[in-house]
Design a binder for these strands. Structure first.
Lengths: 203, 203
DNA sequence: TGCAATATTGCAGTGACTGCGATATTATGA
DNA sequence: TCATAATATCGCAGTCACTGCAATATTGCA
């Protein structure tokens, strides 16, 4: 299940390259003409592939923007699975999110670009929420397993949903303030609030 | 700003009628052919209007399913605005949501139909999330006002986001259990959890 | 080298959604 | 009551994301 990053034959390497070319071309065009002003056809042309091939790599134009953001969330689920079962579910969630949030700082420019498009393009934000909904399911399932209950119970759902809320709120703040405060600190703060209870919020 | 339900000239009345006809026709077709299997053209035909006219009433096919669900959320924002400013923000949120959740029980069948489509059709669920994001903004703004701070602060955002999470979790559970437990009770329970803090969750 | 697996492409199509301009219908004020 | 403004309805032509299918090229492997 884990990532294998050793052999990687010619085929796989080429595929990654193409994928990368698509992303590069896409972001260039997004920058110039805006997300909505860019057609998948134009992206394909910029990446030197046939229009049809674009959809072999990305199911949606929106997914180009959200691509790597996606496996980031996958990593969170992995983290959660590896956490000791003795840990309290909420604590495990918190820790998992923090681990992943930590490397947000390393890829600032790339992330900022993606977030900026997401923040200004409704369809991209919508797609983002849709993907997160999928991960909410995954998180809820993982939590249910460690809690020994049905994934449809309120407990795991609310935990997963709240964690993602915390993450989104943090991200938004992060962007709004021009990445002043490091992301992990914001995430931590949100988790703290949910930990103590929202009745404890300041004013 | 409040609803005016007195005069309502011929024009407005006819418009409401047409809107209603569209919804009726649409749900009939959704039932028969599924959401994705139904074209806006077919809906228009069923409602005795021109294909073009459909988009004069609904910006999106998805919005037919989510229509009345929309003004329900508007009511929550109104409620929040009318709450005494001395009340703690989280308490005000809780109260506002509960007021509106209360009448979920009255329109069971209609709501269940809508939820069921939403639960099984990704594009509809996505649109739902997108609309909720808009209301999250509205809620955050209202909260910021009463808290006397910037709407972009973490506080109001996290509060609004968490409240909506609670709502979604409750709805999901409500549907999953075949509407056994009344919705308000579920909502209340979720708000309780967030109130006390998620660290307090059972196992 | 030959065969299986997979990647790339072209083509033709579907269907949601838009802009525009024409026309019908209702509201309003003189 | 009638002219006029406002708004609703509609047709048309077009754009664009996305799909299924079948042909072809490329790569992995025995």
């Amino acid at each position: 299940m884990a990532v294998m990053n050793e052999p990687l034959g010619l085929r796989a390497r080429k595929k990654l390259q193409t994928r990368q070319r698509i992303e590069t071309a896409a972001f260039e065009l997004f920058e110039r003409d805006g997300f909505d002003g860019t057609t998948t056809e134009a992206i394909a042309a910029g990446a030197d592939i046939a229009p049809r091939t674009f959809f072999y790599y990305f199911p949606t134009k929106e997914d180009v923007v959200l691509a790597d953001y996606a496996d980031r969330l996958n990593r969170i689920v992995e983290q959660l699975r590896e956490r000791p079962h003795t840990e309290h579910p909420w604590a495990a969630l918190r820790a998992s999110f923090l681990v992943v949030a930590a490397d947000y700082d390393t890829e600032r420019e790339q992330l900022t670009r993606r977030f900026r498009i997401m923040a200004t393009t409704p369809s991209v934000y919508a797609r983002n929420l849709q993907l997160q909904a999928g991960w909410e399911d995954a998180l809820a399932a993982a939590l249910a397993e460690r809690m020994g209950c049905d994934p449809e119970n309120l407990g795991p759902r609310l935990l997963a949903s709240s964690a993602l809320s915390a993450m989104r709120s943090s991200q938004r703040r992060w962007i709004a303030t021009g990445q002043q405060t490091p992301l992990p600190a914001l995430v931590q703060h949100c988790f703290d609030q949910l930990d103590t209870g929202l009745a404890d919020i300041d004013p």
